[in-house]
């Protein structure tokens, strides 16, 4: 087992532990802190899987932006403290569905795994690196979805402002 593989498994196990902490903590702020740690562990596994640009975006956008936004709103909104019951009755259905999904997908992927058809690192080295390779594909083949994504972000921004401002105008 090489060092890269070893680190992948270490960060994968850490990521799973942090994700479990996110969904089991009582206070939302603690969950948000563990969410940052989970995202950083995921970014480490991205680097091992030859996606350096996405690892940087993961840390900047998720751990910096999205979780920062969540923490701001947690501070704005006062949650009920010391609630006795943290889950509602759906957890039995949720656990059953989760078990079903794990069994199904694990069965499919442990049975037949697609084989490697090319070496990604060599192909990226031809273009000049991970960022360049992603950029070439993104701005040639996927230019139209890229523009659609920008319109989606604009719509989300306007929608968020309108929704959060609604009551202030009266």
């Amino acid at each position: 087992m090489s060092w890269a593989q070893l680190f992948f498994y270490v960060f994968a196990v850490l990521g799973v532990i942090m994700s479990l902490m996110v969904v089991t903590r009582r206070k939302a702020v603690h969950s948000a802190i563990f969410l940052i740690l989970a995202f950083i562990c995921f970014a480490a596994t991205y680097i091992i899987m030859n996606a350096e640009l996405l690892a940087a975006i993961q840390v900047l956008v998720y751990a910096g932006g999205v979780v920062g936004l969540i923490i701001f709103v947690i501070m704005l909104v006062k949650a009920e403290e010391d609630e006795v019951k943290q889950t509602h009755g759906q957890w039995i259905i949720a656990a059953f569905l989760a078990l079903l999904l794990v069994v199904e997908v694990a069965f499919i992927f442990l049975g037949s795994v697609a084989q490697k058809t090319g070496h990604l690192a060599a192909r990226m080295a031809q273009v000049g690196g991970n960022t360049e390779a992603v950029g070439v594909v993104l701005y040639t083949k996927y230019l139209f979805p890229f523009e659609v994504a920008s319109i989606l972000l604009l719509a989300a921004m306007i929608g968020a402002i309108v929704l959060a401002k609604y009551k202030l105008e009266r």
Partner: peptide, 25 residues
């Protein structure tokens, strides 16, 4: 399998927690 475990943890959290922030996370 790693991705599946994370997805399932998120799914159980989204379906069973009562705090809306933890559902979003």
């Amino acid at each position: 399998i790693f991705s599946l475990i994370i997805f399932v943890i998120g799914m159980v959290g989204a379906l069973s927690r009562r705090n809306v922030f933890i559902v979003l996370m």
